[in-house]
Amino acid sequence: MILGRRHPRMPKGVTARLDRRDQPLAAAELTDGSWAVVAAGALVVVGAGGVQDRHPWHEVEHGSWDGDAREFTVTWVDGRVSPLVLTTADDEVADFTAVLRERVQSSVVHTESMDTPGGAFVRVNIRRDEAGQLFSQLTAQGALRGDAAERELIDDLERRARAAVGLAT
């Protein structure tokens, strides 16, 4: 006998507020009574009043679980946007976190990275958006010098990443 994944049962009133494209692959109840839903195209936070947040997977940089606080923190590719902290109603989040990780990873098609001479780490991800279109996404950890030589290295890195998947360079 093959057992399927156990999904927490969302209240019908909450499920009814989801858009047709956002049918749950996994979900976690939050302490405020809303639900974090992993859908094929996005992370959705929905409550009795409707959708509160919706974030396509290509916007997500990273997710981390703090079991002591029962908090799942989502950080964004755009570091200027504050992380989303989801406080779960219980510790039964293994399915939720695993499926969330899989959805983020599925949006990444190809990656190239390098350390710049100034010490910053630069990564180019080729990602797929909700419509299936590929695009390049650059992130940097550490300070960039911003000079012409560094810009040329980063531009070359992006050209290589785009060429690897057949995107225009």
Rank of each mutant, 00 (worst) to 15 (best):
Phe96Lys: 02
Ala40Leu: 15
Ser34Arg: 14
Ile126Phe: 10
Gly63Leu: 04
Val93Ala: 04
Val165Leu: 11
Leu25Tyr: 08
Trp35Glu: 02
Ala98Trp: 02
Asp53His: 11
His110Gly: 06
Val81Ala: 15
Leu144Asn: 04
Trp57His: 02
Ala27Asn: 07
Thr111Glu: 05
Ala131Ser: 10
Asp156Cys: 13
Ala98His: 08
Ala36Ser: 10
Ala131His: 12
Ala149Asn: 09
Val108Cys: 13
Leu157His: 01
Thr87Lys: 04
Arg159Glu: 04
Ala120Asp: 03
Arg145Thr: 06
Leu25Asp: 08
Ala48Gln: 14
Met114Ala: 13
Phe96Arg: 01
Val46Phe: 11
Leu43Arg: 07
His110Thr: 08
Asp147Arg: 03
Pro11Arg: 13
Leu167Met: 14
Ala120Cys: 01
Leu157Pro: 09
Ala39Phe: 01
Gly67Tyr: 02
Ile2Ser: 12
Trp65Tyr: 09
Gln23Ser: 14
Thr169Leu: 09
Val109Pro: 11
Ser113Pro: 06
Ile2Phe: 13
Pro11Gln: 14
Ala39Trp: 06
Met114Leu: 14
Leu157Tyr: 05
Leu157Val: 09
Ala26Val: 05
Gly119Asn: 06
Met1Gly: 15
Ala16His: 10
Asn125Tyr: 13
Ser136Thr: 11
Gly33Ser: 07
Gly166Thr: 01
Trp76Gly: 03
Pro83Leu: 00
Pro8Asp: 12
Leu144His: 04
Val37Lys: 00
Arg123Asn: 07
Ala27Met: 13
Leu144Lys: 05
Pro8Leu: 13
Ala131Gln: 12
Gly67Cys: 06
Val93Glu: 00
Leu25Phe: 06
Gln105Asp: 13
Arg103Met: 08
Val85Lys: 11
Trp76Ile: 00
Glu102Val: 03
Trp65Asn: 09
